[in-house]
């Protein structure tokens, strides 16, 4: 065990965490403002990744690919909000779960229809290839470092948007009292569409960014979606700050658990059973974290309302 390894794993955990934040931010905004639980958020992530892979394949430009990912996901989000999601705001959560589960089936199989079952490839842009040497002599992939920077920048931007802009004021007002801001003359249905599209664009961005280090394939969104749920449950549903803290906690727990739990059990078990026990526990670590947080605080770390 070296300090270099520890630093590398902490950076990996941060990178994973900020990408989870991009997913969780949209989910938590949509829940906070519209009271909607959206299982199809993972499909928007997938749409972002596929749009990026298609555009990068056609033009070779990573920036264009990112733009395409965000616009495709935002457009898909806005369309879905207009034609389906809008009818679900007044329904109970069961109907929302079911309808958005149905949307996953449509999006996943629709994408398979369009692009086929083989994973697509999305290249890391040449400028971000290779490792950088950090202070202390740590070699770390430049692209992953860029992901951390982008994630933190988006988090800061989102914080400013919510705290300082007119749209942010409306979003916060919408979280507190929907009827009241409608009565004050805010076009609430446009606000809903905008919030949904904003969340979708963030999911699409995450899909494209992660798509370059993993493969772009149908079904890539669902595992991330479930982790994002864990994140917002830990952070408190509706809270952006909670989403950030929760995402970093989950990212670090998952990454560090995967590395250090097998080593920890290696101290007093024989190597093969230590590897087994450690791997099992590591794969469950974030869910155990969530259970602990909920027993301690049933509405999450920053959740005010039940």
């Amino acid at each position: 065990m070296t300090a270099t390894l520890l630093a590398e794993q902490i950076l990996n955990g941060l990178q994973f965490g900020v990408m989870l934040f991009l997913m969780a931010a949209g989910l938590t905004l949509v829940f906070g403002v519209m009271g909607l639980i959206n299982l199809a958020h993972g499909s928007l992530y997938m749409i972002g990744a596929f749009a990026a892979a298609a555009v990068a394949g056609a033009t070779g430009s990573f920036l264009l690919a990112l733009a395409a990912a965000m616009s495709a996901a935002a457009a898909a989000g806005a369309l879905v909000e207009r034609f389906v999601i809008r009818r679900l705001y007044d329904r109970d959560h069961l109907d929302q779960v079911l309808a958005t589960f149905a949307l996953i089936l449509v999006f996943s199989e629709g994408t398979r229809w369009l692009f086929g079952s083989f994973p697509l490839h999305l290249d890391i842009p040449p400028a971000l290839k290779g490792p950088v040497t950090l202070p202390g002599g740590i070699e770390y992939p430049r692209y992953r470092l860029a992901l951390i920077a982008i994630g933190l920048a988006v988090a800061a931007g989102l914080g400013l948007l919510i705290a300082r802009t007119r749209l942010g004021i409306r979003i916060r007002a919408g979280e507190n009292d929907r009827e009241m801001i409608a009565a004050l003359g805010v076009d609430i249905s446009t606000l809903y569409t905008v919030v949904f599209a904003l969340g979708a664009a963030l999911a699409g961005l995450a899909g494209a960014l992660v798509g370059a280090i993993q493969s772009v394939q149908v079904g890539m969104g669902e595992p991330v979606l479930i982790l994002a749920f864990v994140v917002i449950v830990i952070g408190g549903i509706g809270s952006i700050r909670g989403a950030l803290v929760g995402a970093l906690l989950v990212g670090l727990t998952d990454t560090l658990g995967g590395i250090f739990l097998p080593r920890f059990f290696g101290l007093f078990l024989d190597p093969s059973s230590a590897a087994n026990v450690g791997a099992s526990l590591a794969s469950m670590a974030i869910y155990i974290l969530m259970a602990v947080v909920l027993v301690w605080r049933p509405t999450g770390l920053y959740g005010a309302r039940a």
Binding site: I37, V233, M290, T299
Partner: peptide
């Protein structure tokens, strides 16, 4: 509510 849905999912 939603917390219940997500926790059962997580378990």
């Amino acid at each position: 509510g939603v917390y219940f849905i997500m926790i059962t999912l997580a378990f």
